[in-house]
Design a binder for these strands. Structure first.
Lengths: 367, 367
DNA sequence: TTGTAAGCGTTATCAG
DNA sequence: CTGATAACGCTTACAA
């Protein structure tokens, strides 16, 4: 992809494309030089021009329908006032609110965002970084979730300002804004323990993702403090963050230890997958097994059962990341912390309850 | 917003920004002229160069880490190989799959997308069009849902190629890719009629949106054919497409006519809002009233009750729109139709059933 | 206060 | 086949 712009060769689009007026046109109309027009149009340096001239330029620009060509301006100033956002999968309901937060914060400072989906494909992620770099964006916000990511080296090599959102770079070379995953899992565990659960298991997200890894670590860490908890801690890792994977992981977990009374999952979809599996096995949630999710995605309040989950501050996370990136781009004194960690909340709904006095028979129904 | 690029003035970012190698650098390294490098890098016109030279240029570019500056190339060629996508609310689960379809189709042809959220704010939509135009994107895909939209005039005035997705311009000046909303509503009605329903009502989306309007028209049209249906047709318009609005509209509808046995809604969230209201009123869905949604958003299979809904081809819709736009941009012979209409499907789940023999008492529970 | 001239990096055009 | 030149539209030292 050295030459994305000409991949498909040059296409004719010399159709009725109107001549867009340029500074020169405006200059001619007013009878001044183009550079004067440029100055008059720039609020920052309008000051040194006569008010009358400025007014005339503005008027002429208006009537001609002049719009500045951002391409040319960026080429000259080396600033595009645009930042790229790299997202694994916009279809995953975690990301839209983060994106909104990013956009809101960017807009407040006059920036726009260019988002690229990578479909969880690291090659596409690489291409996205290359493309956005080629377009000379001012910085990048990375929401991809890998724990070790070659994108870090790429950004560093290209001298591209970057910030992680919803994940942390393990090599700590790029600042990040994350939610406290250890704390979130701990909230879920405390809740379950208070209800009387001890045989609590974890269905972890893929360990290559930073969230999957952190939440699992949080689980193991917190469970070490729980008296009467299984040793070693019961953990099954799901292949992906999808509902199917949750379903499958649930079956594996039950095969491993049929006596669990509660499951803390790494993600709402995994939790819903567990519920699917329980329905098939004619088990009841929460009567037989309590389940917690993670993220508090939309509609969890009306699924059956309504899912107890950990809510994270998606919008705020995105907004903070954007502000941090702009600080870096504009060389403002960087905030004290290289990383911002937001606090999660527990949302208690119907999928958690006290365990049965007598453990249920946890046998799968005949197929 | 005449000068988006300098809104906040010029910022210093002359920090350790590496010198990015240019064609000149490569040219110097190889000992040829910059224009030769440009040609060697362009697969289209590489042909006329000696293989040896091309190889040397490629090698030099590689070792220097040359990346073409897309800004400069776009300025010169007047083609950015990027198209803008304007979306009302990325948080609405209808849009991510459409966006995926768009991105997939664009990528297949070497284009990238720049998406802008407008938050259902027409002023922000206008600004978005201006900004994307300023950046000289090659075209626009509009997913905003208004029936009469000043954006149309704006695009036309700016000579910006544009296509609508999921909506149609009433003035028919811009091509569109939509799902057949009349047919979709008809599917829902046929299903309900087959179950034995006659007193079928409609909760319409906002009539300023093209989808809300079309589905309502479809409802009125199809109900006119149903013997024993209420005359005039029972319709309540929701303020927005949100769950709250569905809740509220349900109450209005019941006040209007307490004997309805089925409700066709214009959108899944409206349907879920109806379910919320029914739960509060201790009414049972589908026993007391059957409900259908529209769009088949994720998780509808596990909400209570699982929602019968109309599925539309989101991904395909986006992909078609992107292909159509590229056809226009590249002046290919335009497809025969200015509009593409995709067929929806009915997905039958648990929220629809035969009406009770005796109509339920549809009184709201005491507050 | 305004004009001049140069340059951002690329590519089209015209020579040779 | 390759080189020189100019131009895309804008901004900004530097001059006046």
């Amino acid at each position: 992809m050295r030459n994305g712009l000409r991949n498909k060769g040059l296409r004719r689009y010399d159709s009725p494309m109107k001549h867009r007026p340029t500074v020169k046109d405006v200059a001619k109309a007013v009878g001044v030089h183009a550079s004067t027009v440029s100055r008059a149009l720039n609020p920052e340096k309008r000051g040194r021009l006569s008010d009358d001239l400025v007014a005339r330029v503005l008027a002429a620009a208006e009537t001609l329908g002049y719009r500045t060509n951002a391409l040319a301006a960026s080429l000259r100033t080396r600033r595009s006032m645009a930042v790229g956002v790299i997202i694994p999968d916009i279809t995953n309901p975690v990301f839209p609110p983060i994106l909104m937060g990013i956009e809101d914060a960017l807009r407040a400072q006059g920036y726009i965002s260019v988002v690229a989906n990578t479909g969880n494909d690291s090659e596409r992620a690489r291409i996205a970084v290359e493309q956005l770099t080629a377009r000379r964006l001012d910085g990048l916000i990375l929401a991809t979730a890998l724990r070790r990511d070659p994108l870090v080296d790429l950004c560093l090599a290209r001298g591209m300002p970057a910030v992680f959102v919803n994940r942390r770079d393990e090599t700590r070379r790029i600042p990040s804004v994350v939610s406290d995953d250890e704390a979130g899992v701990q909230l879920a565990i405390e809740h379950l323990v208070a209800l009387g659960h001890r045989r609590i298991a974890h269905i972890a997200g893929p360990s290559i993702t930073s969230t999957g890894f952190a939440r699992r670590r949080g689980f193991e860490f917190a469970m070490a403090e729980v008296d009467g908890a299984p040793r070693p801690p019961l953990v099954v890792e799901a292949r992906t963050y999808g509902r199917d994977s949750g379903h499958q992981a649930f079956l594996e977990l039950l095969a491993l230890n049929p006596k669990v009374t509660a499951i803390v999952t790494s993600n709402d979809l995994l939790a819903l997958g567990c519920c699917d599996a329980m329905r098939e096995a004619r088990l009841s949630c929460p009567a037989d097994i309590s389940i917690t999710g993670y993220n508090d995605m939309p509609l969890l309040d009306i699924v059956t059962p309504p899912l107890t989950t950990v809510r994270i501050q998606h919008h705020e996370m995105g907004a903070e990341a954007a502000r941090m990136l702009i600080d870096i781009i504009e060389n403002r004194e960087r905030r004290a912390a290289m990383d911002i960690v937001l606090k999660p909340d527990l949302v208690v709904r119907g999928s958690t309850a006290a365990p049965r006095a007598t453990p249920a028979k946890l046998q799968l129904a005949e197929p």
